[in-house]
Design a protein around this nucleic acid. Sequence first.
DNA 1: AATACGGGGTG
DNA 2: CACCCAGTATT
Length: 342
Amino acid sequence: MTVLKNALAARLSLKTWYADHARNLPWRLKPSLYGTWLSEILLQQTQVETGLPKWHLFMELFPTAGHLARASESEVLKAWEGLGYYRRATLLHKASRVIEAAGEFPMSYDAWLKVPGVGPYTAAAIASIGLGEAVAAVDGNVQRVVSRWAGIADPVDGKTGAQAVQTVADAWLDHDAPGNHNQAVMELGALVCKPRNPFCKLCPISTHCASANNPDMWGVLPAKKLKKKVQRWELTWHIVRFENDIVAIQRPESGVWAKMWAFPETPPSSHFLPLGALMKPITHLLTHRRIEAIFQGWNAPNKAALEAYAKEVAGEVMTWSALKKRAMPRLVTKVFDALHGE
DNA sequence: AATACGGGGTG
DNA sequence: CACCCAGTATT
């Protein structure tokens, strides 16, 4: 079949290109199952450049899965601070304890798939890169490269489109070097077959690319389903204090900023002295929400009242510098920076 | 199948 | 502003 023949040719061109253009990413230097796993979790929905410093930090703080398992969840969350999708940190930590209890890393795609925080993409990436298992890893890069090359018009985030991409990715896979091949496709997506203004002239597989050779398809693929509109959310945080102490809360286990430290949304009772807005409102953008955050300041009449309020909101009384040691989402660090511990 | 889940980069 | 990023878990 001609498609299959083209797939073989594309694989070879890609291999040659990757040998010359692979980035010097630290987890590729002295590959380990742990380092690969860590990189894959860190890079979920996160650009390589953004995840890079966190990989170094984690390798320093938690050099092995055992170190990670023996650390507390709060230590791991603190290390993850600022990166977002904090569930990844708690699942990574949880997984490290499962692996530590088992005494060894999972040794197949199927086994990795059972690990918390590891889905089809991550399991395929780890199994191919770390174990040499012949499974095609399909991430956003691969969806883009494959849908353009094969001219897949169905939305890649729908069932049929995803299946079509998977079929081509499977046909491309180099069974002799699956890890190398998977990384090559992703690298091509990151460096050449970019979301906008792809460098088709530099592309090693443009010869049989449906999109590159048909101007009508430029800027069209990959097709995606329509996204929901971003919701607006007005958020008021109450910064309640007495002398050097404030009240902070750890957010619930589910929802935005799960388990991260922030400020109560419940105002204190009327015998606290209202200070009005402590700082200018902040517009904070998440993928699915546009947050308008307002910060109300209050002075407690005495320490006991502050402690009573903390109890009411299930929070803790602490100093600013104590709060700084807890894991905070970006919005809280913005508050911290603005008030600078006063 | 749809939705929740962060934050930063980019045109 | 809109779209994207080495996606996964939950409903």
